[in-house]
Amino acid sequence: MIFKKNPQEEFGKIYDEYIEKIYRFVFLKTNSVETAQDIVSETFLRGWKAFSKQSSNGKKIKHFSGFLYRIAKNLIIDYYRQKAKVQIISFENVTMIANNDKNFEKANRDTEIASIKKVLQKLPDDYQDIIIWHYLEDLSVPEIAQIMEKSEEAVRVQLSRALKALKTELGVIKEPDSPS
């Protein structure tokens, strides 16, 4: 390579591509716009520092998107450790989502978002993550494996278990009757 790429420009592209995804992920886990903004800010700040460092020392971080998700996930864990309680989602929180659509459509969408969120949040934390990444953000199994630092096989198994748990939650799989 004759010309070295500008790290700021490179990271700017990563920022543009992942800011919404990371924000969405954090918001779904924290249910608070302010908290999501704080965590996402810190995530990208740490990401930018790491990115600049790798640009100067030449040690490239593989799969930077996975790296950002891992930072965000760790910050969420830290947040709950400090907070020691989960904020209950309220309809008001959901309606804070920016939307310029007509009120009727917005109300319908908000209701739908709230119901989906409600189901998701009943799942164990790891299952929530894997469903969000795979079905909402369309991340492939290898990409999720990078984020979770697990083998692809382990991710497939976890994804299967997550779907099973989701089905249970949705009432598709009926629990076997207890023997009388």
């Binding site: 800011i19 924000y23 978002i113 469903i131 079905y135 909402l136």
Partner: peptide, 23 residues
């Protein structure tokens, strides 16, 4: 239906200001 969650987006002004602050 889960894709509807993609409508969860940060405010554009916040996205821009964070990027400015970052750099």
């Amino acid at each position: 239906k889960i894709k509807v969650l993609r409508n969860i987006k940060p405010r554009q002004e916040w996205v821009s200001s964070l990027k400015r602050e970052l750099f």
